[in-house]
Design a protein around this nucleic acid. Sequence first.
DNA 1: CCGCCGGGTGGGAGCGCTCCCGCCGGTTGA
DNA 2: TCAACCGGCGGGAGCGCTCCCACCCGGCGG
Lengths: 337, 337
Amino acid sequence: MAGNGHPTIKTVAARAGVGRTTVSRVINGSELVSADARARVLAAIKELNYVPNSVARGLVTSRTDAVALVIPESESRLGSEPFFAALIRGVSAVLAETRTQLQLTLVRDRFEREQLAATVATRRVDGVLLVSVHAHDRLPGMLEELGLPTVLAGRRDARERLAYVDSDNAGGATAAVRHLLERGRRQVATITGALDMDVGRSRLAGWRGAHREAGVPADGNLVEAGDFTEEGGRRAMRSLLERAPHLDAVFAASDLMAVGALAELRRRNRRVPDDVAVVGFEDSVLARHTDPPLTTVRQPVEEQGRTMARILLDITRHGAERRQVTLPTELVVRESS
Amino acid sequence: MAGNGHPTIKTVAARAGVGRTTVSRVINGSELVSADARARVLAAIKELNYVPNSVARGLVTSRTDAVALVIPESESRLGSEPFFAALIRGVSAVLAETRTQLQLTLVRDRFEREQLAATVATRRVDGVLLVSVHAHDRLPGMLEELGLPTVLAGRRDARERLAYVDSDNAGGATAAVRHLLERGRRQVATITGALDMDVGRSRLAGWRGAHREAGVPADGNLVEAGDFTEEGGRRAMRSLLERAPHLDAVFAASDLMAVGALAELRRRNRRVPDDVAVVGFEDSVLARHTDPPLTTVRQPVEEQGRTMARILLDITRHGAERRQVTLPTELVVRESS
DNA sequence: CCGCCGGGTGGGAGCGCTCCCGCCGGTTGA
DNA sequence: TCAACCGGCGGGAGCGCTCCCACCCGGCGG
C-alpha cells in the first residue's frame, strides 16, 4: 500500500476529498460535477501527476481506442514503400486528433495473415484497416464474422460489400491511355498489375476503355501481365517488345513497373519518349527521379489514409454505416510521354 | 449471463470441468497440469473458439506486450521513407516472434512530441523505440524518468547513456572519403547532415578522419551544412561550387542530398563522375536509380531495427541491461565515383 | 408543512484475468 | 506407522476503471 507506483483514481479521489466516481466524471467530461469539486479534482490530478490507466478503462468499456493497420510485407518490400508511408501518414493524422492509437501489423506470409484474425480477436483493437486485398482473400470475411469494423484500402472486386476507400483506378488509367492516344501514339501497350487484385483489373479495364472511347481496337497482343515489381516490369517490357516490336507507347500499372520498363527500353536503345512513350501509375517519389521524369497518374494516397481512418472511427464511435469512397486521380504529364 | 458475447476463461473452465486457474495455466504453458486436464481444456478452448482477452491480462500483469515506435513525421516526410520502412520491417520481424504488438506513433510537431510522454504513461506500452533523436531532445530523458525502457535508433551524442543501436557513421564516412582520395580526387568536399544530430556530426568527423589518415589537409572551405533533404543538397552543392569551383568530388551525408547535388551538377553541366565524383550515404532504393547510379555507404537498417527490438525485449522481458550497439557499414561502389 | 424532484455525489459490483495460498491425496523416508 | 513432502488443482482477492443505483439535500408546489 505504499504510495509508490502510479497514482490511481482512488489516490486522486482521496487527495481531492471526493469519491472515485466524481474523479471519473471529471476525467470523462461529465456535466454533473460542481465547479468546486471539479477544481479540486483537477488540482489533485496535477499534483499527483495522475494519468488514467487506459488498460483498466478498456477492460470495462471494452474499447481500446486503438485500430490496427494491416500491411502484407511481401508487397511493402517491393519498393511500394512510398505508398505505405503516405497511407500511414494520412491514417495517423486523423487518429491523432481523436487520441486513437495505431497498431501496425506487418504480415509476412499467408500463415501469419490467417493467424492475425485470432490476434485481432483478443480485443486489442476496435477496428481494422486492411491494405492490398486480393480478390479471394479470406481475411476480410473473417474479420466481418468477428464483428470487427473493417475498412479496406482498395476493394476486392466491383461487388465489394465492406467499407473501402479506393482511387479511381479505371478513370486514371483511361486518362493515361487517352493522353497517349491523343498524342498520336498508334500502338499503346500495357503492363498490368497483379490480375488477382481489383487494382490490376481496373487499370487494365481503363486501358481498354480509352481504346473503346477513341474507336481504336484494343490489341490483346499489347497486354502483358506484370506483378507491380520493377523486375516484373522489365520482364513484361521484354516480351512486349518481342511480340510487338513496333509499339510506340506503354502504360504500366505502377511507377515501379514503369521504371523496369524504362530500364529495358534503355538496354535496347529505344529512346523515351521519342521511340516509345512511357506512363506509370501512382506518382511516387520515384517518378520525379527517373530519366526522363515519368508521366504518371497521381493517386491521393494520404487522403486515402485519412478517409479510411475517418470512416473507421465513424463506425466504431458513432455506429455509422459502412461507406465506400472512390477518390479521384489526376494525370501528371512529365517528359516520358 | 447469456452465453452471448465472447467466451471467458470461466466459460472454458466450466466446459472443461476444471477451475479457472487450470485453464490459465494451460494457456500460459505451465507444467503443473496433468495431461488429462490439459487435453480437456484445449478441447474446450477449441470448441468455444476462445481467445484470451489481452486487455484483462494486461490489467493484472501490468504488461501490455506492446511497444511503441516513435517517428518524427517531419523527417519521414523528407523522403527518407525507405529508411523508416526498412527499420519497421526489422522491428516488426522480431516482435512478431514474441507476439508483441507494434504501436506506431508519428509525431507531427514538438507539442505532440512532448505530449507523447503522457500518452505513453497511460501504460499502453511496455517500452519505446525512438528514432531521429536530436542532441538536445528532451523526450528520451522524460521516458527515462518515467522508467519506461527505451532504445534509440542512433544516439544523441558520443556520451549517450541510454540503450541505442547506431550504424558506424564515422567509419562509413571515412571509407567513402578514403575511396575518393584513393581514386586520386584532390578536392573532396562534403555536404553534411543536420549538425545538431550525432549522425550529422559523425559523418563529418569521418570526412575529417579520412583526410587525416591520408595526410591531406581538410579544407574548411569544402564543408557545407545540409539538412538531409534533397533541396538542402542542391543548395549546398551550389554554394560549394561557388566557393570552390575546382572541387572534383563530394561526399553527401545522405543519398537524398546526393540526389540534390547530382541535379545541381547536371544543371551546371558538370559530368559525373568525370568532372566530379559523388558519394552518398544510406544505400536507399534511390541510389540504384540515379543517373549515374550512386556510390554510397550501405547501412544495415533492417538489422538495426531487429537489434533495437531485441534489446528492448531483453529489457522488458528479462530485465537485461541497456546495451549499446554499433553496426558496421559498407561502401557500395557504383558509377558516380 | 410535507412530499417530490433532481442535481450532485459516493459506494458496490463487476469487467476477465493472474497469482497467492491452501487443500487434497499419493508417495517417500525415518 | 506417521510426518513430511510434492504434484495437481481450485477459490478468493484484487488489478484500476466505469456504471448502476442509491443517497442526500435544497427548492418548490400543493
